[in-house]
């Protein structure tokens, strides 16, 4: 079901969305733009995957949504991190760190 996540590393989209929303509530385009910008255009976010991820995260109770006016006074759906989501982000970040370190060690050892 999960679409190929653009240039994203498999399975990291949820974590990146949570990270982005940790700073402030944001609408869909904002999240996509933020991820691309923060990764210095290394990652591209596919709109389909993004909205499927929003639906999934919201149903899992990690984010909530609300219709609000944007700075250009348009209506947009803003997503925000829930307490649950904040906890999940923390644990996923730690886990990610552990995995990256482990992978790095393996790669260094074999070179």
């Amino acid at each position: 079901m999960a679409e190929k996540a653009g240039d994203l590393v498999q399975g990291t989209l949820d974590m990146l969305i949570l990270k982005t929303l940790a700073l402030e509530p944001m609408h869909g385009f904002g999240v996509a733009a933020r991820i691309e910008q923060m990764s210095q255009n290394v990652f591209r976010v596919n709109a389909g995957s993004l909205f499927v991820a929003f639906q999934r995260l919201q149903r899992a109770g990690l984010i909530s949504s609300e219709w609000k006016a944007t700075e250009n006074s348009r209506r947009a759906k803003y997503y925000a991190l829930t307490a649950e989501g904040r906890k999940r982000l923390k644990s996923e970040t730690q886990e990610w760190g552990r995995q990256v370190a482990a992978i790095a060690r393996i790669l260094e050892a074999s070179s």
């Binding site: 609408h27 869909g28 385009f29 996509a32 733009a33 709109a47 909205f51 348009r74 209506r75 947009a76």
Partner: peptide, 15 residues
């Protein structure tokens, strides 16, 4: 969903 997606499209175009 329609509204959210067309908003997204609009913002991306404006960008």
């Amino acid at each position: 969903l329609d509204e959210e997606l067309s908003g997204y499209l609009e913002m991306a175009t404006n960008e």
